[in-house]
């Protein structure tokens, strides 16, 4: 069980969180002009990274907020955690 640092509440056990998939996939502001391929890519294409992965978590049993985490999927090391809307730290 991971210890996940919530940027609002601090480190908490994974049980308090819910996974939210890959981070930084913004919903297009206006989806209508997108081609079917572009839309399908937004809907379904994910990196499935072996290694450093930016992902969303929600502190569902805490502050209930979504936030972002950079995690190494091979070691589960958490390299950064930051609020929704913030940029991924350049160092990771």
């Amino acid at each position: 069980m991971l210890i996940i640092p919530c940027p609002h509440c601090g480190p908490r056990p994974e049980l308090e969180f819910r996974y939210g998939g890959q981070a930084h996939i913004a919903r297009p502001v206006d989806p209508s002009p997108l081609s079917d391929e572009e839309w399908a890519s937004f809907l379904y294409s994910r990196d499935n990274e072996r290694g450093i992965h930016a992902e969303r978590w929600r502190h569902i049993h805490g502050c209930a907020r979504f936030f972002n985490v950079v995690r190494d999927t091979t070691t589960d090391q958490i390299l950064a955690s930051y609020k929704t809307g913030e940029f991924r730290p350049e160092a990771v």
Binding site: A26, R27, R58, F66
Partner: peptide, 8 residues
């Protein structure tokens, strides 16, 4: 709903 409201 929270997901869209908070993140989009």
């Amino acid at each position: 709903m929270e997901d869209y409201l908070q993140t989009e």
